[in-house]
Each structure stands twice: as C-alpha cells, then as structure tokens.
Amino acid sequence: MQTSTHFGSQTSGEDALIEPSRWTFRALWLPLVVVVWATLIGAGMVGLMVYHNSPGARSDGNPVWQENPLVALDTSRDNLLVFIHPKCPCSQATLSELARIQADCGDRLRIGIAVYQPDEENWSDTPVVRQALDIPKAHVFADPNGELATLFGAETSGHVMLFSTQGIRTFSGGITPGRGHEGNSLGREAIRQYVSQNEIICDTTHVYGCPIVDRPSAGLTGNEELRRELE
C-alpha cells in the first residue's frame, strides 16, 4: 500500500524501516529550499531597495541665482533649473516628472535644462536629451564640462533648483521618489505648491541619479551632506 505525504514524496511499507532523520529530511528538504530561496530573494530585494533609495552627492551652497552666460534669470516668473547627465538612465524619471510639473505650472514657470556636455564627447543626441527636448517650452542647453552645474552646486544628475523672480532659491533637490523611479514625490509637490501657492512646503529633497561630472566627491554621501546642511 502506498501513501502520499503532504509534499508528495512517495512512501511505502519500507518507509517504516527508514530512520526518522532520513524521513524528516525527505519531508522537509523542499520547504527548506523554498525558505532559502525566499530569503535570498528578500536579501536581494532589500539590497536593490537600498541602492534604489541611496541619494547622490550634492553641494548646493549658494542659495541665490548665480549669474552666468548660459542662462539668465527670468524676473517675470519662477525659474526652474535642472541639471542632467545626458547618459544617465535615472534622469529619464526626472524628466518625466518635470514634464508633469510643466503641464501643471505652464507659463508660470520657466524651465531650463542644463545638459552636461564634456568637450571630448558629442552627447547632444541621447534618449535623455531627446526626452528633454520634448518637454514643451523647456529651454534645453548644453553645460560644457558641467561648469554651470558646478557653479550652482549640482553634482548629481536630476538635481532641480527653483528660484523665485528675485533669484532666491526656494527649492533644491530631486523630484523622483527614488533612483530612476517615477511617482509622487516631495520635490514635485514642493515645486507645484510654490509655483501655484507661493508656499514653501519643503525646500530640500534627496537627489537620485548618476554623478554629473567624473570627479571624486568631497567624500560625503548625499545624505551626509544634506544632514550637515540641515544642521
């Protein structure tokens, strides 16, 4: 006579002669494998989430508009300045969110997108650049060797800065909830709130993206810098 265990292993009259330890192993090996498998996946997912939520470096020290030859302050409306790396895949989420902001704010907001352009490369036609060019009424311009980003203190692609008509920075940070991830975020809400209500609900958020320029950071992570700044 044959019986079937819960996990499908076949037992017979001979099983009565099998040692209990062997029987236990035959019964539990599959659940154990599943548990190990699930644990590994859980660890992987946690690691991915950690990476996903790790902000980039930042050094946004000057809280006012910096005069420069590439873009001028529009005193008739708020100014939004975005710094992106043309090859950064994470910035596509930033540009998608930027397009939503543009749709919400319209002409009340002047958008300028500074695209990092090293001298040795021609990165003027990348998916990121094309996406930026598709945003209505956005002023897309090259930022040679990231000088403008350096001037404004943006080190991570996707860094967004909002300046009032007087050139005062009211917001600095990212507008995505995570690395390369679209969706509701504090940064987007802060910009929309300021432009529409002239109200500052949040002036700083984490920036998620690739480093704009290839240089060693100050050795501080974005979170540490932000924390220092907040202190």
């Binding site: 790396h85 090859k87 950064c88 895949p89 994470c90 596509q92 990092y116 090293p118 040795e120 490369e121 990231g146 692609s157 390369g180 690739c210 480093p211 704009i212 320029v213 290839d214 240089r215």
Partner: peptide, 9 residues
C-alpha cells in the same frame, strides 16, 4: 532602459 550607470564621462 538602464544599461549603464554614469559618472561624468
């Protein structure tokens, strides 16, 4: 979507 991550060049 994201073949590479970048740092400058």
């Amino acid at each position: 979507v994201s073949p590479y991550a970048w740092a400058g060049r």
